[in-house]
Design a binder for these strands. Sequence first.
DNA 1: ACCTGAACACCGTTCAAGT
DNA 2: ACCTGAACACCGTTCAAGT
Lengths: 252, 252
Amino acid sequence: MTKRALPPVVARMWGRETASRHGPRPSLDLSRIVDAAIGIADNEGLEGVRMSSVAAQVGVATMSLYRYVGSKDELLTVMADAAAPEPPAIDGRPWRDYLTEWTRANRDFLLDRPWLLQIPRNTPPVGPRALRWLDRALAALAGTGLEVAERINIASALTGYANTQAALVHGMTVGAEAGGDGTIGGLADYGDILGQVLDPADHPELAAAVHARAFGAAEEWIDDADFAFGLNLLLDGVQALIARHGGGAAAG
Amino acid sequence: MTKRALPPVVARMWGRETASRHGPRPSLDLSRIVDAAIGIADNEGLEGVRMSSVAAQVGVATMSLYRYVGSKDELLTVMADAAAPEPPAIDGRPWRDYLTEWTRANRDFLLDRPWLLQIPRNTPPVGPRALRWLDRALAALAGTGLEVAERINIASALTGYANTQAALVHGMTVGAEAGGDGTIGGLADYGDILGQVLDPADHPELAAAVHARAFGAAEEWIDDADFAFGLNLLLDGVQALIARHGGGAAAG
DNA sequence: ACCTGAACACCGTTCAAGT
DNA sequence: ACCTGAACACCGTTCAAGT
């Protein structure tokens, strides 16, 4: 309410830095730094992103970066917003069609840049990109008669779902790689590991599932069907809610 | 299928270390180390967990820890499993009642130990505790006629939801604290920030929502109602699925 | 086989000058 | 006001001995 000063990271993400009056002009801007950092993360993963490597990439001394970013954490926060693509266009589609694509696109860009999954998000969305994603989801639900708070909750549940799925698929796909030392190398392995480790007395249901090779079907376990399954759970719930409201166009 | 050797972390989590034949007996075991590390994380947050601080806590040299843990990352992985409580007991309750409590309990222990949210999970669950949680969810759905794969997917969607919600609530509650420098200090701030930053042309729906003070209602925005809302979205979806299967006891 | 001290490598960040 | 080199602090991990 009280119009407090914006937190520094937020100000920077929106280009709201108080412009400096005199003295030499800056030789960089934040977006060049962020793009360089994103490029490094794409190529080498998040561990490749060091203040020194980013600085080298843009051709300045490491220290110069601290003119543009308060800390490495801030840099990561800004990267996380900038690395997302624009949300898909609505084009007048019914809410369910659109939100299906929206959620899928959300998951997909996380899988394209799995290092995004490693950046801890301690706040609700504040960056322009993330807020544009939220905005589009709200717009898609505009005709449904749902209240704003409900629509926000739905969008947040869907983002959460996209995140969870991306993390799961990524964890299964990559397996033993930089970072998680000697972990799991795909689904066959996973069932195998569970089989070796489970105590039927302690994990009866799982032991039965493993025995029944529920994890053996491997390839199709991770594919799109599972994603659609959970997503439709959520969207069915939304649809039921809309119906209960006696609301607008509950097309699908 | 091929009964590969267990990844070292997994072996350690399940106490499957190959016992050593002769020479001095170990002066520690993994669980003492892990408990110490958890204690530190509870008191000081995850940054307080250093190999040196953990070693000091158990009274050995830093280097000794590497007898029990391959790396700090491994230690974190083991901590993440050990820090979870046991899942709630089913007591013959109908699936919907139980899964509601299950998901809520899941969120709650994450909020009790928010440092768990910071530990990146690159794999599906492999620890005994996490697998017991999964097992109980499968058991609760046993009478519904759903297939194992479906039940696993449901459990995974629910854990994901618990995680997302915990992260959201935590991010909103703590605000400016160690780690996320000068970020958001609660919901009033959030609405305020959005108000300052949004461009109505670019974020029309959100701008309208902020204008209508959809974020101003503050206190109740984050409370239990929102959690229940999204959860019921999911559970309604599950219920619809069960009904479609023409399946068992869809009580709840 | 287990424990340990010293040493190394790496990296984020502070500081005091420079222009 | 912006850039920079040197230096500091911190911490995970390797190594070579010790028992």
